[in-house]
Computed example of a mutant assay.
Amino acid sequence: MTVEFLPVYNPSEEEKRDPNLYADNVQKLMAKALGVPATDYVMEGRVPVSTLGGLSLPLASPGRETLSLLHKNGLEAHEIEAALAKIIDRCLSGAQSSKANADELTSIFFLKDKQTAVCICSLYSKDETVDLRQLYCSVSALMDFSNFKDLLHSAFKFFDHEGKGSLSAEELSDLMGALFGIPQHNTGALYAEASSRGLLTEENLLQVLTTHPTYQRVVNDYLQPEEVGSQLLLAPAANGKAVNNNVNGSLYHNKKFK
């Protein structure tokens, strides 16, 4: 067996400031030496993700998979919205835990069978439970009834546990994890950027996510509903709103934050 040794890689000043850039460049160097293409995807547990700005972006969105399961169970857009409204009321009231089991999820969405709820739970956790804050945020991001500013406001309230109007680094990680439906472990760069003006307030976070080139791209590509006509088949629902009948479509779309 021939073992190939690569020379020591000394990071540049830019790479020292950005560990993600350093990791990407090392990956490309190793791929070149092995004669294989470098991929933008990595595995986090069993989930394939791409990374951008330190954030882990799942290739198969749990929110999109959840919508697919709900539609297959016969739910229309207005029924999903009504269930999400119940979820946000429960999470903000503090009267019950934000964790729900498959039986509770079956009741919340008036599902015809528990197995659909079990499948939804498996998208977010290893057991038959789901953090309703994750489910609400990741699904709401793909629905037309709420814009990103409203969604972030709700998410901020979920994780501002003490009602102090600002988030800690850990709380920010939890918030971003809820938006994408998977844990986020590398939100340090986002936290530093959003708190550079002082505390990490909702206003500061919104400004960074919607004006910083990297994070604006994340919002535009991952956290907004797809436009009508962008490879989606839409049919009218009973309440006159459009229902997405192709929720397994591309994760990417062209709708821009305004």
Rank of each mutant, 00 (worst) to 15 (best):
S122C: 04
E79S: 14
D24S: 05
S140Q: 14
K32E: 15
N147P: 11
N254Q: 13
E65H: 01
A237V: 05
L206V: 07
N220L: 11
L152V: 02
E15G: 04
V130K: 00
N245T: 14
L223T: 01
E162T: 09
T211H: 03
F180E: 09
F109P: 01
Y136H: 04
N245I: 15
N248L: 12
N246Q: 15
Y215Q: 00
C91D: 08
T2L: 15
E162G: 09
P58G: 09
A77R: 12
L190K: 12
T66S: 13
M43Y: 13
P7H: 08
F145P: 04
N239T: 14
D24E: 10
K114F: 10
S154C: 08
T214D: 02
R46V: 12
M176H: 01
F148L: 11
C137F: 08
D89A: 03
L92Q: 08
L92D: 06
K164H: 03
P225K: 00
A237E: 14
F156K: 11
G165V: 04
T129C: 14
S166H: 15
C119Y: 09
V218Y: 05
E14W: 09
L111M: 04
T51D: 09
T39L: 05
I80S: 05
V139D: 06
E44G: 03
P236T: 07
Q184M: 03
K86C: 05
Q231G: 03
T210C: 13
H78P: 01
C137I: 05
S173M: 09
L190E: 09
V130C: 01
T201I: 09
N220I: 05
P7V: 14
A85W: 06
K255M: 02
T66Y: 01
E104M: 12
K99T: 10
S50T: 14
G165A: 07
T106M: 12
V219E: 07
A141T: 03
K258Q: 10
A235C: 07
E170K: 03
D150N: 08
E76Q: 08
S250H: 05
G53K: 08
P225G: 00
A235Q: 11
G177C: 09
L67A: 07
E104D: 14
A100G: 08
G249C: 02
D174I: 04
G229W: 02
L105I: 15
M1F: 10
M43H: 07
L21F: 13
R64W: 05
C137E: 06
F145G: 04
F148T: 04
I182T: 12
G240W: 04
V49S: 04
P213L: 07
G53E: 06
L21I: 14
A178P: 02
E162Q: 10
I88Q: 15
T39N: 04
T187F: 00
H212P: 02
L172A: 03
E15I: 15
L34N: 08
S166D: 15
S93I: 01
D89L: 07
H71P: 00
L67H: 06
T214H: 04
L151V: 09
T210Q: 11
A141N: 06
P19R: 01
R133Q: 09
T187S: 03
Y252E: 07
N186I: 02
K32R: 15
G240A: 08
